[in-house]
Design a protein around this nucleic acid. Structure first.
Lengths: 221, 221
DNA sequence: CATCATTGACTGAATGTTCAGTCTAGAAAC
DNA sequence: GTTTCTAGACTGAACATTCAGTCAATGATG
């Protein structure tokens, strides 16, 4: 596992290479789509020869599968970190919605919505990826429901069934991501974010002033 | 256009063949995935030679693209027909949710959720398919919001913003479809249907007794 | 010098597409 | 009514291309 090395922040050149390729793979997948991603592409983007890619990842399938795994982990870890930095449960939930709806300044691979569409399509057929996806979905819903429970304890939120709410919200976020990924003229990032937050505020019974409409504070003037 | 011929219910052998192939294509896509669909597959399933597929659809891309188009049209037409047969707006909305969440008895290609995942992934990159998807999404949202407006006029529904509600519901349905497609152990068809209907009843302010939990009426005892 | 990283050249398999021509049914000509 | 002609449906075999994966050789590095 590279997990321990990553956690320690110490990466051998081998692991660096691996990660380079994984990131390159995600970029290429985002651009060309999963199916049209060739070994030669990620090799070129990494600045190495195609043969070296096979040297590290025995097979193309393994490369792409690991790339997906890598994406999931980065995404989830990033989420966890953000949650820890926020004071209220309402703010945490808002952050989750923002992560799903609003584009990020940095060009992290995660900000590419189309990647998730490919991921889902793949998960429907590749058993391994499917299992990964289910696990991560579960993880995500549990995060949401635990936030709800926590917020209910502090009196921040109204009484609703946390599990049903988690299903509702996570599905809603996925659905909005689809529209955003497809550049829907009506359901853009901002609109999706707003509609979703209003829904949440309504359900959980807290007031939401929309100060996060544009990332980093309102600039309506 | 074959539209007029289709409307008249009279199809020449040529059009029959086309439709055969389109249906076969959808079946194969549902099974093997869009990317792994070979023209040899749809040829075999149709009982013809691969060359004939090219004879009708100049290129593989065109075949698959038209198959998607065909799917959209069948799906939407089916929806329209069902709407027309129902008495109340609440029933119509419930039917929409059922179409998205509950499996159908007949083995129509539409009942395959994975098909939609492939479709979305494709729409993100193929401009033509993307435009189609946006148009259909819009069409779908308008159907929902018009139902809301109608139900509000008759007093069936509470006052909410129809457009926002349409965005919310259509995104929610897409998101639930994702979970169902991926065989999520927690969010299965029934649960998705129920959660979604409770949400709608809550938002629009009507009572829902869940009599449709299993297709064809309650059978609780 | 021994191990690991790296590469260019190559191969084999898969598969979309072309092409030259066959078969059938029906119209036209006689 | 028989023959001829034609058009469209259809096919098998060949073609061209794309690409994942192999391999032997070379370079770096400790």
């Amino acid at each position: 596992m590279t997990d321990t090395a990553e956690a320690a922040g110490v990466l051998g050149t081998a692991d660096q290479r691996r990660e380079q390729m994984l990131r390159a793979a995600l970029e290429v997948i985002a651009e060309r789509g999963y199916a049209d991603t060739r070994i030669a592409d990620v090799a070129e983007r990494t600045g190495i020869s195609p043969a070296l890619v096979i040297y590290y990842f025995k097979t193309k399938d393994q490369l792409l599968t690991e790339a997906i795994r890598y994406l999931e982990n980065v995404w989830y870890a990033d989420g966890q970190r953000r949650m820890a930095e926020l004071p209220t449960d309402a703010a945490r939930i808002e952050e989750i919605v923002a992560m799903s709806c609003l584009p990020e300044a940095d060009a992290e691979p995660r900000s590419s919505w189309t990647l998730w569409l490919d991921f889902w399509a793949l998960a429907a057929r590749n058993p391994g990826v499917g299992a990964l996806r289910r696990k991560d979905d579960e993880r995500w819903r549990e995060l949401i429901s635990s936030l709800v429970v926590s917020g209910q304890k502090t009196g921040e939120f109204r009484e609703v069934d946390p599990d049903s709410f988690a299903i509702l919200l996570s599905a809603l976020l996925d659905g909005l991501a689809v529209q955003i990924a497809l550049d829907d003229p009506v359901v853009g990032s901002e609109r999706a974010f707003e509609v979703c937050m209003r829904f949440i505020a309504d359900q959980l019974g807290f007031t939401w002033d929309g100060s996060r409409g544009r990332r980093g504070g309102r600039s309506s003037g």
